[in-house]
Nucleic acid binder design. Structure first.
Lengths: 262, 262
DNA sequence: CCATCTTTGTGCACGCGTTCACAAAGGCAT
DNA sequence: ATGCCTTTGTGAACGCGTGCACAAAGATGG
């Protein structure tokens, strides 16, 4: 997972819990696959397996949307696809702008999963004048100067930020000023936005770090007993702690300046 | 957020809650920035703001690691960077393989955030023979045939899957068989893995769908009263529902195995 | 029409995560 | 030393999310 929603503590939107909303796309994907194979109905058990969740959870999730199942039979695939799509707002067309057409931006522009779900890439925007006009994924890259006009002309409300971290907040501010109210942020920075603007963050290196944590734990368990090479520094008393802190800078008990400069 | 951990319900690893582990990289990033500016100490309040979280949460998170602060003063930046890095396992080198060198795979290979956090791209692997040998991000792309040998020769335990959905499970199986125990999956599929293997999933289109949901809600509130253009199909009576369901298919009871063959 | 069987929808309990609020701890000035 | 001021660390309460387990609902066959 990448990380989550930024503000909006857990605003249960219209009674549908956030956790459920986050799973709806999962169900939708599984259902779409079934639909393509012309499967007419599916039980909560089967669908749950396909979506990788627990069947009780799935049933409870669906219960927030309404009573769309038939007891003794299951759920009608086509009907459920429609209901979930409508609930997620995918029955309408969402124009999207992608800002920052580096490797990642280009990958996003080429990503097929967008178009098939009601998202349309309205424009690709980059600050580099050399990029302007160059076609990426069939669209000419536009210069940042045009950002505001592109957004208002196309009625765009969703923006994707794929710039370097340094430029992200500035781009974000311009997007918001231009009327964007939902942002998907790939830059490794915390964006600050005014009330009413939703930000979701996807951070590639964070995901890897979380994996590393568990990986280290597995390796540690396997080898010794305790976690990792752990008991070395379990929880020091105050003075020892302070000493270690000092040591990490230079001291006699020299223990490495710690970690990367970057 | 992209979506989260797959199995392991909430295994509180060594007493550190999952939710806390997921935030540690966030703190680490903020601390690293402070470190670069040679800020010696930071209060929980300041750091929390920089990381985009609540200060009480941050203090509680740190309390799981130990008592690393000084009352009345705050936290020593360098020392904390070291402690968090160690906890996350970033003081060691993690070789990583990326499978599937399309747009996304290439973007990942070029992503600087990995190298600076202890992750080293050991190899780029693709099934297309035409890609073999072609340099991407300074590394020659290797063919899938070499997958097993690359992993064992380099002692790789973390794999990144950036293939199309159709190939993901197959690649996953080979990675696991070759000894990989942590997988970061970018393919839009539910991977099934044996016990002991961690999978984290990043799904670009799911993030957008969640944004669309909130966006729709905002638009709906603004315009009318109720949610979106909703009342159109609010919750039909049973017979109407069944009729719609029947219309969408054909046979009386045509069944089909349901769920995927794989 | 009745009995039986399947599967949904949900009441309930439990546990994790978040937040509040405050006592304890340390620094610093006098 | 002593007292004040700042900031941590955490006990406790609360709320959300999850999973169990079962009653209700509908289909199906006789």
């Amino acid at each position: 997972m990448a990380t989550g929603r930024t503000h909006r503590p857990a605003t249960r939107s219209r009674g549908i819990p956030e956790a459920t909303v986050a799973r709806l796309p999962l169900y939708l994907r599984a259902l779409t696959a079934l639909s393509e194979r012309s499967v007419p109905t599916v039980s909560s058990e089967e669908l749950a397996t396909a979506a990788g969740v627990n069947s009780a959870k799935l049933r409870k999730d669906f219960s927030y949307l309404g009573s769309y199942g038939t007891r003794g039979v299951g759920y009608d695939v086509e009907y459920l696809v429609y209901q979930i799509s409508r609930e997620l707002g995918l029955t309408q067309d969402w124009p999207v702008v992608i800002v920052g057409i580096g490797n990642l931006g280009a990958a996003l522009a080429n990503y097929g999963g967008f178009a098939s779900r009601g998202f349309r890439v309205a424009a690709l925007i980059d600050a580099d004048p050399a990029m302007a006009g160059k076609p990426v994924a069939g669209l000419p890259v536009r210069h940042t100067d045009e950002l505001e006009s592109i957004i208002s002309d196309n009625g765009v409300s969703i923006g994707v930020i794929a710039t370097p971290a340094g430029a992200a907040q500035q781009v974000c501010d311009r997007l918001v000023a231009a009327g964007i109210t939902s942002i998907l942020n790939f830059a490794p920075t915390v964006l600050s936005v005014p009330e009413g603007v939703d930000v979701r963050k996807v951070d590639l290196s964070i995901e890897l770090q979380i994996l590393a944590f568990h990986e280290q734990r597995k390796a540690g368990e396997e080898a010794g007993q305790g976690p990792a090479a752990a008991p070395a520094q379990p929880r020091q008393g105050t003075q020892a702690r302070t000493a270690a802190a000092a040591a990490s800078r230079k001291g006699p008990e020299g223990d490495v300046p710690a970690v990367m400069p970057a």
